[in-house]
Design a protein around this nucleic acid. Sequence first.
DNA 1: GTCGGCATGATTGTATACAATACTGTGCGC
DNA 2: GCGCACAGTATTGTATACAATCATGCCGAC
Lengths: 228, 228
Amino acid sequence: MNKIDTRIWTTEEVAADLERAVLEHRLPPGTKLGEDELAEAYGISRTIVRAALQALAHKRLVELRRNRGAFIAQPSVREAREVFEARSLLEPRTARSAAERMTGADLAILQANIDEEHTALDAGESGKALLLSGQFHVEIARIAHQATIEAFVSELISRSSLIIALYWRRRAALCETQAHHALMKAFTAQDGDTAEQLMKSHLLDLVASLDLRAVTEPATSLREALGR
Amino acid sequence: MNKIDTRIWTTEEVAADLERAVLEHRLPPGTKLGEDELAEAYGISRTIVRAALQALAHKRLVELRRNRGAFIAQPSVREAREVFEARSLLEPRTARSAAERMTGADLAILQANIDEEHTALDAGESGKALLLSGQFHVEIARIAHQATIEAFVSELISRSSLIIALYWRRRAALCETQAHHALMKAFTAQDGDTAEQLMKSHLLDLVASLDLRAVTEPATSLREALGR
DNA sequence: GTCGGCATGATTGTATACAATACTGTGCGC
DNA sequence: GCGCACAGTATTGTATACAATCATGCCGAC
């Protein structure tokens, strides 16, 4: 790993940098994050690295195993379902609130996000596109002026990125942008009802595009995996 | 502060112990949590204390001000509204799920919780009663088999405890237990519809019993608090 | 040849030393 | 007497040293 070592990295910056790497699928689930390795890469001591890892662990992006180290989390099928269950409780109603208080400036921000995502996709940067696609959802919570829900949604989106890395099935990537376009129309019309409904089905679509039948449970899978 | 210093405290245990103190209103909002002070009290080094404080900060129970130290959080009026908005999105639907998959063992646990709360109230331990009252809500999320939502609800309950400490108005404390009793009946009947509705109005009751008109924003409060 | 135990190395857990920053009180100047 | 500057103190921020734990590979016994 190589980083520009003239910079002084704070705990939050290290955590954000690692999170971004995870969300862009540059760090796949299960990757070991050695403390010395990271400390050297960022040119800081393990103290900061540990604090950053603890922060990410609290967001469930990283799993800390005592005396073993930190690993990029590998959400189970159950956890994947739970994450989308939580999202389905929070996001549709939040999209409604957002639609109802949407301003021109907000619309511009959302549109810029979609445009950037298109640019990234055209450039073949699918990781960056996925990151932006998630930011779209977080932005909606911000527009609804619900900082608390925004924090939850942000965490759920991050975890969703891991889930997608593990369980994504469909290779056709165009469904995403279509749904966001449809939401934009509802937002522009300040149509809360429609926004709520669209978000609801968008989330259902997302779950449907995952392969959650898989019996890839890390803990209990061994005997089943061997079929005996 | 005095603790039994024969015990070896882990980070999680220290965090849990502090959280319990906050939830029981033994540590009021705004209290400074000095690192040396805590380290000595638990008989550990500042390393562990800092990790525990960071964990609590992530749950928004503690506010970390750079180079200033850690303080028990003082949720603003806005934050209070946001917390109950989030709860109103998560808890009613979760109560429905819980009701539908409620077992006899689950009912027993919930009933035991209510009984303990009564005992605590009779013994004048209002802090412990409040803690148990919160645990009732978390237990419901656990019964619904939604660990992710459970974690969110747990955080929201903890923050609600701070909010109650700051903005509680009604002194009559019996409304709480009544609502929980009503929920128990719906759970016993495995009546999801009723459980969802009861939880919804229970949360509305809670907000209604707070005084959120207050202009008690920490920053601007000093002059007003002195009335001049 | 395979299994189990042991030694070695690598990595994490914890404490502590030192540096940087913010708070407190005193003294000097006006 | 009042206000500001400065020094001293206390507290937090960061790095590092050491201890504890785990992983790996070798060697001997069966």
